[in-house]
Amino acid sequence: MIVTAYLLLIAAILAEVFGSTMLKLSQGFKRIGPVIGLILGYGAAFYFLSLTLQSLPLGLVYAMWSGLGTILTVYIGVLFFKDRLNKKAVMGIALLVVGLVLMNVSK
């Protein structure tokens, strides 16, 4: 059951990152394809998140969802949109990772 919950959490994270990417591509809600993608992405993210919350604690789920979603969204920005990271941004990502690890080992 716990493995299933974590798989659902991964699905929620990936759906949220997809929705955020589609938000960027929508160009301010001017392109219908990406707008449909962001609605589907965010809808799926919240659906999977709600299923995850049936088995895992709210604080842990939200920290994982928002933290890993942030890290993956930054990666997508760098990879596809040529966003740049400075040392402070890299340090912030490292702190997110450390915080997520600590939350998982302390549960």
Rank of each mutant, 00 (worst) to 15 (best):
W65G: 12
V98E: 08
A63Y: 06
A94F: 14
G33N: 07
R84N: 03
G43D: 00
K88V: 14
V105F: 13
R84D: 02
T21W: 01
V3M: 12
G69Y: 04
A44G: 01
M22N: 07
I2T: 12
E16R: 00
V78Y: 15
L23C: 11
L40E: 00
K87E: 10
S66H: 13
P34L: 12
L14A: 14
P34Q: 04
F80D: 01
M1G: 04
F46E: 02
L8Q: 08
S50Y: 10
V3S: 11
P57G: 06
V78K: 05
P34E: 06
R84M: 05
V101W: 09
Q54S: 05
T4R: 05
K30I: 12
L85P: 08
L96T: 14
V101E: 01
Y42H: 09
R31V: 10
I39L: 05
S55G: 10
K82T: 14
L102H: 12
L68P: 08
G69A: 10
Y62F: 08
V17N: 01
M1T: 03
K87R: 08
A44K: 00
L14R: 03
V61Q: 10
L8S: 09
M1I: 14
L79T: 06
A11Q: 02
V35L: 03
G59R: 09
V61F: 14
M64D: 09
Y62R: 04
K87F: 12
Y75F: 09
S66N: 13
